[in-house]
Each structure stands twice: as structure tokens, then as C-alpha cells.
């Protein structure tokens, strides 16, 4: 096997993540090839230099944690407030629409070529949300809880990335939970949701 191929596997060899066959090939090559053995040493050395540079003193971590836990304690009273559940008739439409708009804002208003990676993720999340909304239809009401778990995971990510304030998300979650508790939706409400989703679909695809 060529030295270049071996070189590409050196880091995997160091971290012991090659399969047995690959590992044998690399090990055998290293016993015969001085230049690859030297490369291996360099990679090891590079890592130790980087690790040395990227380490920090205990005091830095202590300081970070002090600020962190102060903020956390300050945040607690507002988190304990009980949020009122909204009028049911408004809730079903409000949830998917707000969440989808939130996503669309995240996806489309961000300028330039900012993070294809983030955009792709947002679109996936949008698709998930729409699935969640679809499950509000009578035949899918039982699976709402499952769907809302997926939505929750997204919400957590969105919140961590500052796409929405935590109050917004608290409310959204309250509403999703309220919906999960067997509220029936009227024909009109279902139609409204359907229309809204269809228009969001179009927008997202155009």
C-alpha cells in the first residue's frame, strides 16, 4: 500500500479505531517504512503540542463555573412561574404557525451564505414540525406525544442557539402538552392548520 494511503490512516491508527485488517496493514508498513514512522511521530507530537496549548488552569474553570451558577440561580424564579394555558380554540393553529415562522425566520432572514449546515438542519426540523402538526388530525392524535418528543428535541436545540426566547418555548411546550391531553379539534381548526402548512410548504420549497 502506498505511503500516502498509510498516512491518511495514521490518526485512526493512533486512536485505535481502524478495523483489524487495516490496523495490521498499517502496523506492517510502519515496521518497514522510516518515513511513515516519522510521520506517525510527528502526528503524535502535533497532538501533544496542541493539547498543551489548549489546556487551561483550574482557576479559569472555577471562574467560569462561578459566573455560570450565579446566572443559573438568578434565572430560577422566572422559570418557576406557571404559564397559563391559552384558549384551546386558538392554540392548535398558533403552535405550528409560530414554530414554523420561527424556523422560516431562522432560515430565510439570515444573510448571505451563512451556514449551509444550519440551514439544512433548520429545514429538517421544519419537516419534523410539520409532521408534528399533521398528527393533530383525528387519525393521528394518538401519536401526538411521540411527535411532540421530536419537536421538543428541536425546541431545545433552537433555544440553545438563541433562536427564540425561553418564554416563547415554554409557552409552545405548554400548548403542545395541552393538545396531547385529548382536546378535540373542530373541522375548521383542522382546515386552518392544513392551509397554513400548505402555504409554509410552498414558501419553503420556492
Amino acid at each position: 500500500m502506498s505511503c500516502e494511503t498509510i498516512e491518511k490512516s495514521l490518526i485512526g491508527y493512533l486512536d485505535q479505531e481502524l478495523d483489524r485488517e487495516e490496523e495490521t496493514v498499517v502496523r506492517d508498513h510502519l515496521t518497514q517504512c522510516a518515513s511513515c514512522s516519522q510521520r506517525l511521530k510527528e502526528v503524535e507530537q502535533l497532538r501533544s503540542v496542541l493539547l498543551q496549548d489548549a489546556s487551561a488552569s483550574d482557576s479559569l474553570f472555577e471562574e467560569m463555573r462561578r459566573t455560570l451558577f450565579e446566572r443559573i440561580r438568578d434565572s430560577r424564579p422566572s422559570r418557576e412561574m406557571v404559564l397559563p394555558v391559552r384558549r384551546r380554540s386558538w392554540a392548535p393553529l398558533w403552535v405550528p404557525v409560530t414554530l414554523s415562522l420561527m424556523l422560516l425566520i431562522g432560515v430565510w432572514i439570515v444573510p448571505g451564505r451563512y451556514q449551509e449546515f444550519a440551514m439544512k438542519r433548520d429545514l429538517t426540523a421544519l419537516a419534523k414540525l410539520e409532521e408534528g402538526a399533521t398528527s393533530l388530525y383525528p387519525e393521528g392524535v394518538e401519536s401526538l406525544e411521540e411527535e411532540s418528543a421530536a419537536v421538543d428535541e428541536y425546541l431545545m436545540l433552537a433555544q440553545m442557539e438563541g433562536e427564540a426566547s425561553s418564554d416563547d418555548l415554554e409557552e409552545d411546550l405548554e400548548l403542545l402538552n395541552a393538545l396531547g391531553e385529548g382536546d378535540d379539534l373542530s373541522e375548521e381548526e383542522l382546515e386552518e392548520i392544513e392551509e397554513e402548512i400548505a402555504s409554509l410548504d410552498e414558501e419553503a420549497l420556492s
Binding site: M64, I72, S75, E153, L155, M156, Q159, M160, S166, L173
Partner: peptide, 24 residues
């Protein structure tokens, strides 16, 4: 900056942790 990013990340994680279902 790394310290600040870390602090911010752990703070937001705390706020949103109750929604984490352990699916990933």
C-alpha cells in the same frame, strides 16, 4: 472568548435541559 462561549453554552443547556429526552 473560549471561556465565555463555554459559560454561555452551559447556561443555555441548563435552561433547556428539561426538554432533553435522551434520544441522542
Amino acid at each position: 472568548d473560549a471561556k465565555d462561549v463555554l459559560q454561555e453554552c452551559f447556561f443555555n443547556l441548563y435552561l433547556s435541559l428539561k426538554n432533553f429526552r435522551g434520544e441522542s
